[in-house]
Design a protein around this nucleic acid. Structure first.
Lengths: 204, 204
DNA sequence: GAAGTTTTTCAACGTACGTTGAAATAGAGC
DNA sequence: GCTCTATTTCAACGTACGTTGAAAAACTTC
């Protein structure tokens, strides 16, 4: 039937019709694939295929796989200053709850994408461990514990990080049930008191 | 000086002299490289080079990279039954402390190797997430919470997993200081009460 | 509407990977 | 000491990767 119209035509070259934004399509596809496969596992060809464009576009628009990863994943979706202000806005006794709820409500709508992408790339991409450390510890937690008058501030910051990172791992990366599908409120009630203890409780 | 003895001779073929165990050397090298690079990042050639043998030995002794990974990493170093017995041996009020101390004393001497290897391979190797889940949740934690008479047993098990996995991530994989270098006793005192609350405390 | 610029596809390159089959060498059995 | 088998290295294969340069097509400017 319709002989000759079955085979897929080679795509026409040259500029796209109009309105289509190759750069944005690549960024969106890159976020998906980097989240699923990590830096090494995500191939330029697979990202380009999902975006519906040629792999050479990655070099043209981002200067290579490295630049695409930097733009798509390493760039944080939220302004850290706003985040810190929001976390510090309220009584000290409820800061644990604000931390847990904030991370869950920021990550849940996107399935923990950026977090999962970083964890999945922590081996293959040297920058990633540094970015994780810089964001979690230096940018967020150190500035939060600085406002508390408790001893062992740095240890408290990394203890909080251990619980938040662990929550992200279990919920978004390895998906242990029932935690992976639990309500935000349930998790806040369960986890927040522990985070609170790390921040203001007695550690020894 | 000594002209002609500088260049490296091509290795002699055939069986090794005696006593040298290629299989064991490959397993040891594989554990190191899989820990450092994860499944995809660890190349058969680099593992063989570290073991001082040819890459073809991987196929001869383990049937390929997949089989080597299974033998070197997926195989757990500790008998789960013994571990569960040990964790349950004592008063329920101190089970959190036993869990934290046990994981730290098991992982610390080997730098968290198997744990780091699994995390670093969680993307590139499909079995790994299943193994992590099976070991942490099904083999260990479910059997521990089964001995407690508290509600929400499965949720409690995954909450404990989130704290233990997070502790392993921060201490062995991304290495946030000062937690990464803290004494075992310090960490036990800091973390154990939180694990204990997940197991026997009020979650909501 | 012609010239110039930007965007896109295509074809190919060089490299690295896991794997394979054959040749070479050492030990084992008799 | 000869034969057989196990072990090891070597050379090569096929595949997939990231990247590149040129050609083609659409838009922009005048």
């Amino acid at each position: 039937m319709n002989p000759g119209s079955q085979h897929t035509e080679p795509k026409r070259r040259g500029r796209r019709a109009g309105g289509e934004d190759t750069k944005a399509a690549l960024l969106a596809a890159a976020r998906e694939v980097f989240v699923e496969r990590g830096y090494e596992g995500a191939t330029v060809r697979s990202i380009a295929a999902r975006a519906g464009v040629d792999a050479a576009m990655v070099n043209h628009w981002f200067g290579g796989k490295e630049g695409l990863f930097a733009k798509a994943v390493l760039q944080l979706p939220i302004d850290p200053n706003t985040l810190v202000e929001h976390l510090l806005d309220g009584p000290d006794e409820a800061i644990g709850e604000r931390i847990v709820r904030t991370f869950l409500t920021v990550w849940d709508p996107i399935g923990g994408g950026p977090f999962a992408a970083m964890v999945r790339s922590v081996t293959s991409h040297g920058q990633v461990a540094d970015v994780l450390r810089g964001f979690f510890v230096n940018t967020l937690l150190r500035r939060i514990v600085a406002h508390l008058d408790a001893p062992d501030r740095d240890l408290r910051a990394t203890l909080v990080a251990s619980q938040i990172v662990g929550m992200g791992m279990v919920r978004y990366v390895v998906r242990f049930e029932p935690l992976a599908s639990a309500d935000v409120d349930t998790l806040v009630k369960a986890i927040a008191p522990n985070v609170q203890r790390y921040l203001t409780g007695d550690l020894g």
